[in-house]
Amino acid sequence: MATGGRRGAAAAPLLVAVAALLLGAAGHLYPGEVCPGMDIRNNLTRLHELENCSVIEGHLQILLMFKTRPEDFRDLSFPKLIMITDYLLLFRVYGLESLKDLFPNLTVIRGSRLFFNYALVIFEMVHLKELGLYNLMNITRGSVRIEKNNELCYLATIDWSRILDSVEDNYIVLNKDDNEECGDICPGTAKGKTNCPATVINGQFVERCWTHSHCQKVCPTICKSHGCTAEGLCCHSECLGNCSQPDDPTKCVACRNFYLDGRCVETCPPPYYHFQDWRCVNFSFCQDLHHKCKNSRRQGCHQYVIHNNKCIPECPSGYTMNSSNLLCTPCLGPCPKVCHLLEGEKTIDSVTSAQELRGCTVINGSLIINIRGGNNLAAELEANLGLIEEISGYLKIRRSYALVSLSFFRKLRLIRGETLEIGNYSFYALDNQNLRQLWDWSKHNLTITQGKLFFHYNPKLCLSEIHKMEEVSGTKGRQERNDIALKTNGDQASCENELLKFSYIRTSFDKI
C-alpha cells in the first residue's frame, strides 16, 4: 500500500482533458527560462521544448504516446526543470519506465491550478516501474492521483506527508504495488545497510526511497516546507523545498512566496507586481503582455491589467481597466465587458449561442446573426445582446428569417469595421425574408467608422429604411451602385405612401 494514499474509496472516473512563447529569463536562482504550460502528445517531438525550461508557468501534460519505446527515452533528460506552477499529468506514455532521468531536479509542483483537485496525476502508464522524482520536495496545493499503472512499484516507500501538507485526498490505487509483488529495495538494503531515512506512518517504520538508488530526502521537522541542505541544516524561511546553503534567500532552489532578481522575498516591493503567484514583474512586463494579447485571437491570451499590486489576466467583477495605466478602477454604474472572439468572429444561430455573449459591452471581433427560429426570440436576444455598444469588426445579418427588427441591439452605437466582410463591408444584410426595420432612427444613433453597407434580398425592408441608415451611420456616399439592390429590397412591402385627393359631386333626387 502506498504510504499516505487512500484505498478502496469510491472515486469519480478520471477524465483526461485534452506555445513556446518565453516569458522571460528567471535569473540567477533558476538555471534556465520560464516556459508556458505545455500539452505534449502523440510523439516526442515537442518534448524537446523543455530543454531550457527551469519553470513551467502553467501545467505540463505528457500523454497518448503509443509508439514510443524505452530506448526512445534513454537520452532524454531535462535537468534544468525545477518547478511547475500548476500540475504534472502523465497518461498512456508507452515505453517510459521512470522519471528519474527525465526530470531529475523537479523540486516543486505548486498546484496553482489543479487537474480535478490533483497536482500530480500518473494514470495508465503501462510501462512505468517507478516514479523516480527523487528531488520532489513540495506539492504546495492539491493532491496526488496514481492509478492503474500495472508495473509501478516504489510507492509504499514514499512518505507523501513530507511532500504535501495533507495526504487525506491522495488516491493511489490499482498499481502493481497493490499486489505486494514489488519487493522494493532501498539503497544499501541488499548489503544489509540502512542508507535512507525511515519514518513512521500508520504504525509502520519504513525506509523512504524513490528507487533502488535514490533515497527520499527527509528534512528535520523544524525546517517545515522550506527544505534543508545535504547536511540537514534548514533553508531560509522564504525558500521552498530545498537550498544549497542554509538561511540564505539567494540560495533557495525555489521560493515559498515570490522570486525577485535572484532572491526569494515575502512580497513584491514597489515598483514590482505579483505575477502568477510566484514571481515579481515590473510595469513594462505587464504592459507588454497586455499589448501582445490586445489584437491576438490565441486562446488563453489575456490583456493583463494591474489590481491590488498584482498583474492579473482581467479586472475583477465591479472594476474596469483604465487604459492609460492598466489599473483596475471601480465602475460607475454597470461595468464594461470586452469579449474577445477566439477566431475573430462568432455566429449567433440560437439563443444558446447568444447567451455566451451575455453582459458583453464591447465585441472584439465580428458578429454573424443567422437565426431561423426560436421561442420568445426578441426578448431572449435583447437579454443577451442588448448591452453590446461596440463591435470592432463587422455585423452580418444573414438568412435570419425569424427577425423582424434589429432593435434587440438596443445599445449598439459603434461598428468600427477594423475587419470587413469580403474585404469591403462593415454591415452586411443578406436574404432576411421578414426583416422590416433596422432601428427606430428617431431614437437610435449608430456610427460606422469604416467599410460599406450591403443589402440584398431583404424583400420587406424598404429602401427608405436603408437610406436612413446611410445618413445616420455616416456611410452615405461610400456605397457603390450594386451594394444596395434596388429590386430585391422592399419588393414585397408597401414602401411608397402617396396622399390621394378626392373630389365629389353631391346629387339628390331633384338636383344634379
Results as ranks from 00 to 15, higher is better:
His28Gln: 08
Leu29Met: 12
Pro31Phe: 12
Gly32Phe: 11
Gly32Ala: 09
Glu33Lys: 08
Cys35Met: 00
Cys35Asn: 00
Pro36Trp: 04
Pro36Tyr: 07
Pro36Ser: 04
Asp39Trp: 13
Asp39Glu: 15
Ile40Ser: 01
Ile40Asn: 01
Ile40Thr: 03
Ile40Val: 15
Arg41Gln: 09
Asn43Gln: 09
Leu44Val: 12
Leu44Asp: 08
Leu44His: 10
Leu44Phe: 10
Thr45Pro: 15
Leu50Met: 13
Leu50Glu: 00
Leu50Asn: 01
Asn52Ala: 06
Asn52Gly: 15
Asn52Arg: 06
Glu57Pro: 00
Gly58Glu: 00
Gly58Ile: 00
Leu60Asn: 00
Leu60Lys: 01
Gln61Val: 05
Ile62Trp: 02
Ile62Leu: 06
Leu63Gln: 08
Leu64Lys: 09
Met65Trp: 02
Phe66Leu: 15
Lys67Ile: 11
Lys67Cys: 08
Arg69His: 07
Pro70Ile: 09
Asp72Arg: 02
Ser77Gln: 13
Ser77Asn: 14
Phe78Lys: 01
Pro79Ile: 03
Pro79Ser: 06
Pro79Lys: 04
Pro79Val: 03
Lys80Ser: 08
Lys80Tyr: 05
Met83His: 07
Met83Gln: 08
Asp86Arg: 02
Leu88Val: 07
Leu88Met: 08
Leu90Val: 08
Leu90Ile: 06
Leu90Arg: 00
Tyr94Phe: 07
Leu96Asn: 01
Leu96Pro: 01
Glu97Trp: 10
Ser98Lys: 03
Leu99Thr: 06
Leu99Asp: 00
Leu99Ile: 08
Leu102Ala: 03
Phe103Trp: 05
Pro104Phe: 01
Pro104Asn: 00
Asn105Tyr: 05
Asn105Lys: 07
Leu106Asp: 00
Thr107Gln: 13
Val108Lys: 02
Ile109Asp: 00
Ile109Asn: 00
Ser112Val: 09
Arg113Gly: 11
Phe115Ile: 14
Phe115Ser: 05
Phe115Val: 13
Phe116Pro: 01
Asn117Gln: 06
Tyr118Asn: 03
Ala119Tyr: 00
Ala119Thr: 04
Val121Thr: 09
Ile122Trp: 00
Glu124Val: 02
Glu124Cys: 03
Met125Val: 02
His127Phe: 03
His127Tyr: 03
Leu128Lys: 01
Leu128Arg: 01
Lys129Met: 08
Lys129Gln: 10
Lys129Gly: 04
Leu133Tyr: 02
Tyr134Val: 15
Tyr134Leu: 07
Asn135Ala: 11
Asn135Arg: 07
Asn135Ser: 09
Leu136Val: 06
Met137His: 13
Met137Asn: 10
Ile139Ser: 01
Ile139Arg: 01
Arg141Phe: 09
Ser143Asn: 09
Val144Arg: 01
Val144Met: 08
Arg145Thr: 04
Arg145Lys: 08
Arg145Phe: 04
Arg145Val: 12
Ile146Asp: 01
Glu147Ala: 11
Glu147Phe: 13
Asn149Phe: 03
Glu151Val: 14
Leu152Gly: 02
Leu155Arg: 05
Ile158Ser: 05
Asp159Arg: 06
Ser161Cys: 05
Ser161Ala: 15
Ser161Ile: 06
Ser161Met: 04
Arg162Ala: 10
Arg162Ser: 06
Arg162Glu: 15
Arg162Thr: 07
Asp169Ala: 07
Asp169His: 13
Asn170Trp: 03
Asn170Phe: 10
Asn170His: 05
Asn170Ile: 08
Asn170Ala: 10
Val173Trp: 01
Val173Ser: 08
Val173Gly: 02
Lys176Ala: 06
Asp177Gly: 15
Asn179Tyr: 02
Glu180Val: 09
Glu180Met: 12
Glu181Thr: 10
Glu181Asn: 10
Asp184Pro: 04
Cys186Ser: 06
Cys186Glu: 05
Ala190Tyr: 14
Lys191Ile: 12
Gly192Lys: 15
Lys193Gly: 14
Cys196Val: 13
Ala198Ile: 12
Ala198Tyr: 04
Val200Gly: 04
Val200Pro: 09
Val200Cys: 09
Val200Thr: 10
Asn202Gly: 11
Gly203Gln: 07
Gly203Asp: 09
Gln204Asn: 13
Phe205Pro: 08
Glu207Lys: 07
Glu207Val: 04
Arg208Pro: 14
Cys209Thr: 04
Trp210Arg: 06
Trp210Ala: 06
Thr211Ser: 07
Thr211Ala: 15
His212Asn: 13
Ser213Val: 10
Lys217Ala: 15
Lys217Arg: 12
Val218Leu: 12
Pro220Tyr: 05
Ile222Ala: 12
Lys224Arg: 05
Lys224Gln: 06
Lys224Ile: 09
Lys224Phe: 05
Ser225Trp: 15
His226Ser: 07
Cys228Arg: 02
Thr229Pro: 09
Glu231Trp: 04
Gly232Trp: 04
Gly232Asp: 15
Leu233Pro: 03
Cys234Arg: 02
Cys234Val: 01
Cys235Gly: 01
His236Tyr: 03
Ser237Lys: 05
Glu238Lys: 03
Glu238Val: 02
Cys239Trp: 00
Cys239Val: 01
Cys239Gln: 01
Cys239Lys: 00
Leu240Glu: 03
Gly241Trp: 02
Gly241Cys: 05
Asn242Phe: 08
Cys243Leu: 01
Ser244Asn: 08
Gln245His: 12
Gln245Val: 09
Pro246Tyr: 04
Asp247Tyr: 14
Asp247Ala: 07
Asp247Trp: 05
Asp248Ile: 03
Pro249Val: 02
Pro249Ile: 01
Pro249Glu: 05
Pro249Cys: 02
Thr250Trp: 03
Lys251Met: 15
Lys251Cys: 06
Cys252Ser: 00
Val253Met: 05
Ala254Asp: 07
Cys255Met: 01
Asn257Arg: 11
Asn257Gln: 09
Leu260Val: 09
Gly262Gln: 09
Gly262Ala: 04
Arg263Ala: 01
Arg263Val: 01
Glu266Ser: 14
Pro269Leu: 01
Pro270Leu: 05
Pro271Cys: 02
Tyr273Ser: 04
Tyr273Arg: 02
Phe275Lys: 01
Gln276Trp: 04
Asp277Gly: 10
Trp278Met: 02
Trp278Lys: 01
Trp278Gln: 03
Arg279Thr: 04
Cys280Met: 00
Asn282Gln: 07
Asn282Met: 08
Ser284Glu: 15
Ser284Leu: 12
Phe285Met: 07
Gln287Ala: 15
Gln287Arg: 15
Asp288His: 06
Leu289Ile: 15
Leu289Pro: 03
His290Pro: 03
His291Thr: 01
His291Val: 14
Asn295Ala: 04
Ser296Trp: 01
His302Lys: 01
His302Leu: 04
His302Gly: 12
His302Thr: 13
Tyr304His: 03
Ile306Ser: 02
Ile306Val: 08
Asn308Ile: 05
Asn308Val: 10
Asn308Leu: 07
Asn308Trp: 09
Asn309Leu: 03
Cys311Thr: 00
Pro313Trp: 12
Pro313Arg: 10
Cys315Val: 00
Pro316Phe: 02
Gly318Glu: 05
Gly318Gln: 15
Tyr319Leu: 03
Met321Trp: 14
Asn322Tyr: 06
Asn322Ser: 10
Ser323Tyr: 14
Ser324Tyr: 04
Asn325Pro: 04
Asn325Lys: 03
Leu327Ser: 04
Leu327Ile: 08
Thr329His: 04
Pro330Asp: 13
Gly333Leu: 03
Pro334Trp: 05
Cys335Arg: 03
Cys335Trp: 11
